Amino acid sequence: MDLHLKDRSAVVTGASAGIGRGIATCLAREGVRLAVVARREALLNELADELSAEGLARPAVIAADIADDADQETVLAKAEEALGPVDILVNSAGGRRRSGLTATDEEWAIAMTLNFESQRRLTKRFLPSMRERGWGRVVSVTGKSEPPRVSGEFCAKAAMHAWAKGLSREVGPDGVTVNSIAPGRILSEQMLRNYTEADRAEHVKEIPVGSYGEPEDIGRLVTFLSSPLAGYITGTVIPVDGGLRRYQF
C-alpha cells in the first residue's frame, strides 16, 4: 500500500533506542525525511548510519533533552533548518522515575514533566506551522490505562490521553490529527535493562499472541497514523499489546 508519505517531514523524539528508534526506521523506509532527537548523540548517529547504509535519506541528528525549554527551541530551529516546515511530530521520549506513595513532590513533578509536560510544550511549538498549512500529524507514545499502583508515570500518561483528545477537537478543523499509542510489552532497551530473561518468560504467558512485541510493531502503526490515509482517525488511544490488556474499549 502506498501511504503517500514520500518527502513528508517528521521529527521523532526518543529516537536513540527502543520504540523511538523503531518508529524512525519505519518512517524512513516510507520515504519520510527525518530529524531524530534524543540526548545520546552517538546512538542517533549510529541510527543515521544504519539508515544511510540501507540507501535511505540520512536523518538530521539533534542531540537535545526535550524536558529543557531551551533545548526544545533548539529542536524546533534545527528541525526546520534541516527539513523546512515539519508535517509530523512523534512524541516518543519519556522516562520512568520513582513517584509512588512515598515519593516527594519534586519526584512527582519530574515524572509528570518527563511524560506529559515536555510533550505538551514541544507539540505547542510545532502546531502553529501545521495549522497554518492545513495539514499535520501528532502521534504520542503513551501507556496503558490499567495502573497497577500509584505512579506519576501512569498519571502523566492519563493526562496525555485527556490532553490529546481535547487537542484533537481544536485542531481537527485545521487538518491536524492527534493520536496516542499505548504499547504493551515491547522488546526494547528498557525492557532488557529492567527485566531478566526469566521475568520476560513469565510476562509472555500473559500475552495472548504468545510473544513480546518489537519496536517496529509500534513504528508501523505510527507510520499509518502519520499518513494522509489516516486523516479520519483522531483523538484515539490505540493499544499495541498483543491482546494483553483486559478492557474492551
Rank of each mutant, 00 (worst) to 15 (best):
D7H: 13
R8Q: 15
S9L: 04
I19W: 03
R21A: 05
T25G: 03
A28C: 08
R29K: 14
R29M: 10
L43R: 11
N45A: 08
L47N: 05
A48H: 04
A53G: 13
E54N: 09
L56T: 06
I62V: 15
A63R: 11
A63K: 12
A64T: 10
I66R: 00
A67D: 02
E73C: 11
T74N: 12
A79W: 04
L83T: 08
A93Q: 06
R97P: 00
G100K: 10
T104H: 09
E107I: 11
M112K: 01
M112D: 07
Q119Y: 00
R120G: 00
R125D: 04
F126G: 04
R131P: 08
E132C: 07
W135F: 15
G136R: 08
G136V: 03
V138P: 02
T142M: 03
E146N: 15
S151Y: 02
F154W: 09
A158I: 10
A159W: 03
A159S: 11
M160I: 14
W163D: 02
L167N: 01
S168A: 14
V171M: 07
V171P: 00
V176R: 01
N179T: 08
N179C: 09
S180I: 04
I181V: 08
I181D: 00
P183S: 05
I186E: 00
I186F: 03
S188K: 00
M191I: 11
M191D: 02
R193A: 15
N194H: 13
A198R: 12
K205M: 11
E206N: 09
E206D: 14
V209S: 03
Y212F: 15
G213Y: 01
E214N: 13
D217T: 10
G219K: 01
L221Y: 11
V222H: 04
I233F: 10
G235V: 02
P239K: 06
P239C: 11
P239E: 10
D241T: 09
D241W: 12
G243F: 11
R245D: 06
R246F: 05
Y247F: 15
Y247T: 14
Q248M: 13
